[in-house]
Write a protein that binds this DNA or RNA. Structure first.
Lengths: 140, 140
DNA sequence: GCTGGCCTTGACGTCGGCGTCAAGGTCTAC
DNA sequence: GTAGACCTTGACGCCGACGTCAAGGCCAGC
């Protein structure tokens, strides 16, 4: 299988595959004419990479999984190094989610405060004077 | 006030200030010698920028707030455009948090599945045969 | 033999928010 | 007059994961 077909079957681009090879992540054999030659195993490696990328893993973080598959293990996460990456990622996600939630709370607070201030200004420009007049009328 | 002092007082760098000016975000008057000259108002603008940046706002997203202050409003979020940015940001944050939580759940699932598989392999190498032998013993 | 579709390497561009260096001007204090 | 602390502009570097273009090689079908 040549690079174009592999890219199509994995739903990615030839440029990405060349980039992975450059990183040593997905090395390719070469045909006699210099073309990259891939097998079905490479499709598995590539799918592993893409799956993890969809989870937000950086390419370097996918390396243990790829190497695990290359070593002949049944799954990319059958190796301790992969499990360690899972653990680190979970901690990272928890921290990130917590930070975002805190930020969300602060932005929401600023937002409602600003809206309140706006409403008070609007009230001050119309309602309050009218009320004063109204009370004046009642008292007169 | 010159650029160095403003940077120190706002807890940022001169490079950042020059960059903001380049974006037209924080324009500076010039002294006779060509040095940038800032006032206390500029410190307020800058603090507004930094606060929003800490919330994860991009520089372009801070622009409505800065322009609002420059227009003489009491707060950076006293203008409709700023409130709109708040709203967009809240929606963005919600979406981002939701996506991360979904990813977290999927990674956690993969992780526990992988750990289970590992434990079963470990068991398969020792415990399971022992159990079979144990039942054999009972039945024999 | 020629068109068209594949492939090759190399190299520069992208996005954001600056960091960092270079070469030089300005002002103050001694 | 000179050291040193500030300032100026300009330009390249960085991070990650590629996109995009250029110039050229390989191969199948007509």
């Amino acid at each position: 299988m040549r690079i174009g077909e592999l890219a199509r079957r994995a739903g990615t681009t030839t440029r990405a595959l060349r980039y992975y090879e450059q990183l040593g992540l997905l090395p390719a054999r070469r045909a006699g004419n210099g073309y990259r030659a891939y097998g079905e195993d490479d499709l598995r490696l590539l799918r592993q990479i893409r799956t993890l990328q969809d989870f937000g893993f950086g390419l370097e973080e996918t390396r243990p999984f790829v190497e695990c598959l290359q070593a002949g293990h049944p799954e990319g996460d059958s190796c301790p190094a992969s499990l360690e990456v899972y653990r680190r990622k979970l901690a990272e996600l928890d921290e990130c989610i917590a930070r975002l939630q805190e930020v969300r709370a602060q932005v929401a607070e600023q937002f409602s405060r600003a809206e309140l201030a706006r409403d008070e200004l609007a009230a001050g420009a119309g309602q309050a004077p009218l009320c004063e007049l109204a009370t004046d009328w009642k008292e007169t």
